[in-house]
Amino acid sequence: MLTYVLRTLLRMAITLFLIVTLVFFATRLSGNPVDFVLGEGITKEDRALLIAYYGLDSSIGTQYWRYLSSVFSGEFGLSFLERRPVSEIVLERAWPSLKLLLSAVCFTLIVSIPLGILAAIYRTSIIGSVVMVIAFLGYAVPSFIIGILLVLIFAYTLNWLPVIGDGTALHFIMPTLAISGTLVAAITRFTRNAMLDVLSQDYMRTARAKGLPEWIVILKHGLRNASITLLSVVGLQIASLAAAGSVVVESIFAWPGIGDLLVRSAILRDYPVLQFGVLSVAVAVIAINAAVDIAYAFADPRIRLAKG
């Protein structure tokens, strides 16, 4: 078991190193921040002045070395734009993002698991089809369309819900709905399939032969078997939620989250913020995935063997 944990940790370290390196060189390849931050209409000398000011005048190897050592010393540098420590900036954004993420995950679990079970039990009837159709809608519409429509209906027209920021519980309703679409679709589908897996197991036949109603059997055996796997699906969703899906939702609801920060710093080539932000998200995702893997390995020795 210990070797397994150690292996997982080593793999994490390698992955993080890969990410740090990839992000470092990808950003350098993609352009100079001076052309994005305040490069409009300045003279050549001034441009050189600013490049030196941002510490971008040394060779890329030197910069990379400096960056790696800064990662190990925990000094991640100043934002090019805001001139304050990037850790402070990312930290400021992490909590609002986390709150929205938790809210979305809770909402998703509450909605998707019953829907998935329903779709499995009634897979041959119309109920099952309807459930899946509804769930698929989550995949089918860009979240910013859902978000803006929600805003126009519930805030602009009906004036029921606030639209800006994360001040109160009411503020969470629309962003949660907008951001959860794909998550609901994914988890509903997953739950249904997991339940179908369970339905084909031998003990289900036994249970059914004993005359227990199918839904009791499903709940009892199915959910227990599916729970850890469910956790891992949620873990996998975090990376995409952290920026892919959430940047648009954060933008619509003026939510001071990390997705908005990452995309903005990428567009403006604010390398220090981008590097630290990606690293933070990656650490979170990898840690969650690793924790799930380890928990899973405890529960199921076969995985341990397969992975080891």
């Binding site: 803006i148 805003v151 602009y156 004036n159 639209v163 933008s251 619509i252």
Partner: peptide
């Protein structure tokens, strides 16, 4: 940042 939200914020 978003136009629709900014206008809506006046309404709410």
């Amino acid at each position: 940042p978003e136009t629709a939200s900014r206008i809506t914020a006046l309404k709410t």
